[in-house]
Nucleic acid binder design. Structure first.
Lengths: 206, 206
DNA sequence: TAGCACGCTGACCGATCGGTTAGCGTCCCG
DNA sequence: CGGGACGCTAACCGATCGGTCAGCGTGCTA
């Protein structure tokens, strides 16, 4: 009956409970990213944490809440991570930083990032996903704003803004399907290389 | 006991059985694409086809075989579809056709395409996925070859070939996450617009 | 017309799923 | 030192999963 949310913040054990929740979210995000939502059972999460299945229900109401916490958290934080790092510079340079910062976030919080980007977009339980979609739209709106500003400043050609934003996000969002951390370039460098190609094009100058 | 694979091709009923299999594969690919592998039960597939669950096992050994047939089929056919449509033209023009032809295939066989691209890449049952991965590699090898030829011909700048291939494939592979057939541009036109941006770049000429 | 092949079904199986419940042990505090 | 709060668990629940099996009905064939 005693829910974790009602625990008094003054007790010294509050820190333990908070760490437990972080551990659960960490292991869960890794499992969700590796095996998918349906492919990850509550037993799997409990086993990975070294605790009983019942304890999961003392910290979260159900499986859906764990998943929502993972995906909403990473989506919201991605937006803030990127937004906070945009430099005071020309629009095109800000677009580049948008991409490299996203690569950094991917590098740091890879499992949660994969779990949220592979989450089914037409989820039946959309009420829980609404807030996540809001931050996703914020994130996409940000890159569109940056592109529009680059066009207005004369740094970009007058391209199709939504489609250009999708091209940039596609390159970043698809990365988890082929990127392996043990070899090759690091995600921020990959994002930077993508940026070079998209900015300057493939066609050789005449 | 009588397996579909052993049915004599001479009987008139063979046509019915083959159509049944196609119907099953069609409905299954739609369900897999919509709800994922684990989110689609054999009961769901049977219900969508208007048949009993048992009948599925007369045409396929198990659920995995249905999924393998869907994903392997679409991956193999994507390669051939694109390869067969490459024009006798300059390398850059062939890259463009690679992209638009992929858009055409996506438009035609959307469900099977989504089912196979959202299939988990680190599937535990990799023996079944091996042949699919082979065609996937063929497909990716094809775009790399075209890019390399464009560089050798002086049409492209000396870019990083694998990374350029990944940029192009990312733009196409991510399309199913935001594309809605009832509105906006058609997939081949989207692919063509992507091609323009990637070829010429975003940066305005000085 | 007798028989058989085959498309097809309903009932059933053990396993595993998400989630519940009763209660144990321990540590803090009055 | 007594009591209650809390972290935590084992056992259990109904539902649903993938897969099996015995057998029905029909239509072709000998």
């Amino acid at each position: 009956m005693a829910r974790a949310a009602t625990r008094p913040a003054t007790t010294p054990e509050a820190g333990d409970a908070a760490e437990r929740m972080l551990q659960i979210l960490s292991e869960a995000s890794r499992l969700f990213a590796t095996n998918g939502y349906d492919g990850t059972s509550m037993r799997d999460i409990a086993l990975a944490c070294g605790i009983s299945k019942s304890l999961l229900y003392h910290h979260f109401t159900d499986k859906d809440e764990i998943f929502a916490k993972v995906t909403l958290g990473s989506t919201r934080e991605l937006y803030h991570y990127v937004f906070d790092r945009l430099p005071e510079a020309g629009p095109a340079e800000r677009v580049r930083r948008f991409m490299t910062a996203t690569g950094e976030y991917f590098q740091k919080y890879r499992w949660a990032w994969i779990a949220s980007t592979t989450a089914f977009w037409n989820d039946p339980e959309q009420r829980r996903q609404k807030e996540r979609m809001m931050w996703r739209d914020q994130y996409e709106g940000l890159i569109r704003t940056l592109i529009q500003e680059a066009i207005d400043a004369g740094e970009f050609r007058p391209v199709d803004v939504p489609l250009t934003g999708r091209l940039i996000l596609s390159s970043l969002n698809w990365m988890h399907r082929w990127y392996r951390p043990e070899k090759g370039m690091a995600p921020p460098q990959i994002a930077d290389a993508y940026c070079d190609m998209i900015f300057n094009g493939l066609v050789a100058p005449r």
